[in-house]
Design a protein around this nucleic acid. Structure first.
Length: 227
DNA sequence: TAGGCCATCTGGTCCT
DNA sequence: AGGACCAGATGGCCTA
């Protein structure tokens, strides 16, 4: 395990980490050498069905009022020989789909295309989320998996909320003109999440440095030890 | 080779 | 009726 993996593993709260490792194992965190973002093959290989649809039912794609109809084609790799779902195989080899009336088949393909666009939009949103999460975006680092992206985003939001609350309390404290050396009252955790906020005001000084948007600050948010 | 992750297809359900 | 959303199934790619 390299340093990057360790850092990311530290980012997950204990309960979340336990849950993740139980459900998905450590690979749920999306690390592994050699897996590079934007690796060959792309995320959206061209399926023969999609190819068919782009030529046959492009009109229905536009009818959805979404802006992604062109994007879909851009993502596809016509050279990718990968085959997709069983239904397509059935279709290709004269399966159930090909036995359906032409109208039904057309409708099914249209529905498939819509679903594909929907999932692409969802993935675009996830990419947007990844882009604002402070983790290593280096090409040599594997892209965060979907589940890891969501969990890190949750941690990041909680961390930011807590940092904001700490800052507010500090400002309020300073405005009162009290001595900085007197103990700062135990902060009330925002959003009723006291159990997941290990920080106290006394830890603010050391934590503040690490709230600079670096991955480490996010990674350690929910560790037992503050910062 | 097993397991993780992912894209796609599909049928069902709900909503407008 | 048509579209959005969802979950299950399936199969490919990649890594340990």
């Amino acid at each position: 395990m390299n340093a990057g993996e360790e850092n990311l593993l530290k980012s997950i709260s204990n309960d979340t980490l336990l849950d993740l490792t139980q459900r998905y194992g450590q690979s749920a965190f999306g690390f592994g050498p050699g897996h590079i973002t934007g690796s060959p093959g792309g995320r959206y290989p061209l399926t023969p069905a999609a190819d068919f649809l782009s030529g046959q039912t492009g009109k229905s794609n536009e009818s959805g009022g979404e802006q992604t109809s062109d994007d879909d084609d851009d993502r596809f790799d016509p050279l990718d020989p990968r085959k997709r779902g069983s239904a397509f195989d059935d279709d290709k080899h004269g399966g159930p789909l090909s036995k359906k009336p032409k109208e039904q088949r057309s409708l099914r393909l249209s529905i498939n295309a819509r679903e594909r666009r929907r999932m692409h939009d969802l993935n675009d949103a996830l990419d947007g989320l990844r882009s604002v999460i402070p983790y290593a975006h280096s090409p040599s680092v594997r892209k965060l998996s979907k589940i890891a992206t969501l969990l890190l985003a949750k941690n990041y939001i909680l961390m930011q909320a807590q940092a904001l609350e700490e800052m507010r309390r500090l400002v309020a404290y300073l405005n009162q003109g009290q001595s900085i050396t007197s103990p700062i009252p135990t902060p009330i955790a925002p959003f009723g999440q006291a159990a997941v906020y290990p920080f106290t005001g006394s830890a603010l000084a050391t934590c503040a440095e690490k709230y600079s948007g670096t991955p480490a600050s996010l990674f350690k948010q929910h560790n037992d030890k503050p910062c």
